[in-house]
Design a protein around this nucleic acid. Structure first.
Lengths: 113, 113
DNA sequence: GCGTCATATCATTACTCACTGATATATTAT
DNA sequence: ATAATATATCAGTGAGTAATGATATGACGC
C-alpha cells in the first residue's frame, strides 16, 4: 500500500522535474520571453534571440511537444505562441522569487561554475 | 545603447535559468517537497526521500547557497526549512501548469529518454 | 579523553544534453 | 519545373553535473 503511494508521488516529482527542465535553459527562456510579447515566426525568434536557426527549431520542437508553446501555419511561415497564460504567470513568479534570492543564486557555485 | 540593454536582459535570463535548474532535479524537488510539510533535520530527509546521506547534504548545500532553504542548528541536528512561502507558491503553480501539459511533458522525448 | 551520532566534503565516474553543420522538407513565386 | 525562402531533422561533439564511496568535521554523553 505504502509502496503504491510512494510510486505515485515519485512519478509526479519526475514530471515536475521534467517540466522545470523545460524552463531551465537560457535559450528556451529567451524564446519564451520573446513570445511573451506576442506570437512570432521562427526567423523573428532567430533574430531576437541571436541563436542559430537549427538551435531555435530544436528548442521549439521541445517546447511544442511539451505543450508550452503552440504553432499555426501562416503561408510559408510558422507562427509560435505561448500556449497558456499560466506560463507567463510562472515566469513572473520566478522573477518575483528571484528578487529575494538573486544574490544567493548568483553566488551558488556548487553546481555550475 | 541597445547593446547595454541586451546585456542586461541576457544576464537576467541566465539568473532565471540558474534558478530553474535549482528546481529541475528530482532529488532537490523531493527535498523541497518534504520540507513543504514543515522543517526537518537531515536524517529525516534521508529517510523520507530515500536518497543517500551525502547526496542529501550535497543538494542541501546547493539549496542553502541559492537561498531556497534556511537552516538552524538544534543540538547536533541541523534543521532545514523552506526559506520563503514564494517557493511553495511556485511549486503549486507548477503543479497547476502540469495539469494542462502533463501529457505533453511526459511524451516529449526530444531531450531525455 | 574516547566513542558515537549527525552532517559535510570531495574526487571519481557515468550520464545527459545543448550546440553545430550539413541536409531535408515544405511553401510560394517565376 | 526551378529557384528561393522558411523551417525541420539529425549525427556528432563537447561541456556540465548528479550519484557514489570514502573520509572529514562537529557535537554530545560517558
Amino acid at each position: 500500500m505504502t509502496q503504491i503511494v510512494t510510486d505515485r508521488k515519485t512519478a509526479t516529482i519526475e514530471q515536475r522535474a521534467k517540466l522545470f527542465r523545460g524552463f531551465a535553459d537560457p535559450s528556451r527562456l529567451a524564446i519564451l520571453g520573446a513570445l511573451c510579447g506576442g506570437p512570432l515566426v521562427v526567423h523573428e525568434l532567430v533574430e531576437r534571440t541571436e541563436l542559430s536557426q537549427p538551435n531555435v527549431s530544436n528548442h521549439l520542437r521541445c517546447l511544442l511537444d511539451c505543450g508550452l508553446v503552440a504553432s499555426d501555419r501562416d503561408g510559408r511561415f510558422i507562427r509560435y505562441r505561448i500556449s497558456s497564460p499560466r506560463i507567463t504567470a510562472l515566469l513572473n513568479d520566478v522573477d518575483a522569487l528571484l528578487e529575494l534570492v538573486a544574490e544567493g543564486v548568483e553566488a551558488c557555485g556548487n553546481y555550475r561554475e
